[in-house]
């Protein structure tokens, strides 16, 4: 079931110069069921160039609060970033398929715990916090590989560290390994890719393609979360399509998470 709901802003925390973390409570007290990897469509406060809703991935759902990490890149996202505690936002949710975490439901506690690698770049780390938390609650050992331009761009680092092992790369070397996430993926001294039963990726497309290539070379199942521009978020307008082996599919309803084997990327 999908809903159109008003949420009250409980807090709006500045994470760095470009990103804020909003914690929202449903005004009617009823939090819809959500899955990691799903997203919401936010109605931004009125501004001339914001007409459509803004798709934002779910960063976390905890203690009756929905967390959204918003990168302030346009008029609409900047307006949201400036909103204050007590103001309300209208959301359509939950949207999209989410990461395939259901296969980890029946993890047998006696056998070896499955390992999942979650790779995020920039604000793309947002859905991985929620995914990591839920995976851990199902007996999975999550490892996070977070990439950013610089140390301050490694968002929610301490929260990730509470859930699992965290590896970091920064382009300027100010934190973790200098370079891109692929630097670490290609170094078997740091991570043994074949030990993972799945890799989940969210970030800039070139990064996702590079990670998908590493996953394929090592025979590890890999899924990526896409962020094609969309209008409706409901599979009606067909604007956000991605080419797949089954033709053009909507990122909003058939995705945003796709297994790399479904896509026509050259990897």
């Amino acid at each position: 079931m999908k809903y159109i709901k008003d949420f009250a802003i409980v807090s709006n925390e500045r994470l760095d110069d470009r990103n804020v973390l909003l914690k929202l409570r449903p005004v009617d007290g009823q939090m819809p069921d959500t899955k990691p990897g799903q997203f919401v469509q936010v109605q931004a406060p009125a501004a001339q160039d914001t007409f459509l809703r803004l798709p934002i991935s779910i960063n976390n759902v905890e203690d009756g609060l929905l967390w959204l990490m918003v990168q302030m890149i346009g008029e609409g996202t900047r307006a949201i970033g400036q909103m204050k505690e007590g103001q309300s936002l209208n959301l359509v949710l939950p949207l999209g398929n989410g990461f395939s975490i259901d296969e980890f439901w029946n993890t047998d506690s006696r056998s070896m715990r499955p390992q999942v690698l979650l790779v995020g770049g920039g604000v793309g780390i947002a859905p991985l916090l929620y995914a990591g938390r839920v995976l851990k609650s199902r007996g999975v050992e999550p490892t996070f590989l977070l990439g950013a331009r610089t140390a301050s761009g490694v968002l929610e680092r301490s929260l990730f560290e509470q859930i699992g092992r965290v590896l970091i790369t920064t382009e300027d070397g100010s934190l973790g390994t200098r370079g891109f996430v692929t630097q670490i993926l290609s170094d078997s001294q740091i991570v043994e890719l074949s030990s993972f039963s799945k890799i989940m990726v969210c970030g800039p497309k070139p990064m996702m393609i590079a990670v998908a290539r590493c996953a394929k070379q090592n025979g590890v199942d890999c899924e990526v979360s896409l962020e094609n521009m969309m209008a409706c978020g409901l599979g009606a307008c067909l604007c956000c399509v991605e080419k797949t082996i089954n033709g053009n599919l909507c990122v909003c309803t058939d995705g945003p998470v796709f297994n790399i084997n479904q896509l026509t990327w050259q990897i």
Partner: peptide
């Protein structure tokens, strides 16, 4: 029909363009 390639949508002032 497969339709046109992505990108198919651009948001504009008080409206949107599509080429689905």
């Amino acid at each position: 029909r497969e339709g046109n390639d992505y990108p198919r949508m651009a948001e504009t002032a008080s409206g949107m363009l599509n080429c689905v």
